[in-house]
């Protein structure tokens, strides 16, 4: 039953692939351009990076001397971004095309708005899950929570009894007599 609906959906997607590839290729180029357009915005942020890096706490300070040597030299930080710039665009079109060809939901997931919606749904899901976990099980019965509380009260009772005996010298039987007399149940004095 579950296998039947999945097969035709795959076929439909395969059909869509044959029609759409040039459009998606254009979109991938648009994505590349937008990413390149955002590049210079990041570049002015790079120079203030090198002077302000602070001293980490003791142990990482011992380990980070090599990293501290990198920021002061302007040539070394300049080289990695230039090398990293060509690298990101090359994997870009392939995964974009792959995801677009495979499924629409994955392509939809590439947008911020979609991620925001899913994030809100996930937050509500986790909150409900936490509430459900807290409300699990009946109030009475042999539950782990009840057993723990019962054990703690028992330990408390034993501790109070032994401490009372240590403080006053009255043993368990005498303590019971005192309780019964004070409550007026039986007159044992």
């Amino acid at each position: 039953m579950s296998l039947a609906p999945s097969i035709p959906s795959i076929k439909v997607k395969v059909g869509a692939v044959s029609v759409a590839p040039p459009h998606r290729a254009c979109r991938s180029f648009a994505v590349i351009r937008s990413s390149k357009a955002e590049g210079p915005i990041r570049r002015p942020a790079a120079p203030p990076l090198s002077p302000p890096p602070p001293m980490p706490p003791k142990t990482p300070a011992l380990s980070t001397p090599p990293t501290l040597s990198q920021p002061p030299t302007p040539v070394k930080p300049a080289a990695p971004p230039t090398s990293s710039q060509p690298m990101p665009p090359s994997p870009e079109p392939k995964p974009v095309d792959a995801t677009a060809q495979m499924r629409k939901p994955v392509a939809g997931a590439m947008t911020l708005e979609y991620q925001r919606k899913v994030a809100k749904d996930l937050q509500e899901y986790f909150k409900k899950k936490k509430l459900e976990e807290a409300d699990q099980g009946p109030f009475f019965g042999f539950l782990p929570k009840n057993e723990i509380s019962n054990g703690r009260w028992a330990m408390f009772g034993f501790a109070v009894g032994m401490l009372t005996e240590y403080a006053t010298g009255s043993d368990f039987v005498q303590q019971m007599k005192i309780l019964l007399s004070n409550f007026g149940i039986v007159d044992l004095d």
């Binding site: 296998l3 609906p5 994505v31 392509a107 939809g108 590439m110 947008t111 911020l112 708005e113 979609y114």
Partner: peptide
């Protein structure tokens, strides 16, 4: 896994046109 995929597919079909029209693409970096 298959159930997850089917459910995700149904969800995305409803959302896809809206997200494509209005969406800001997530940058790969």
């Amino acid at each position: 896994g298959s159930q997850c995929r089917l459910a995700v597919t149904c969800n995305a079909q409803a959302v896809a046109p809206t997200s494509f029209a209005q969406g800001t693409p997530v940058r790969p970096t």
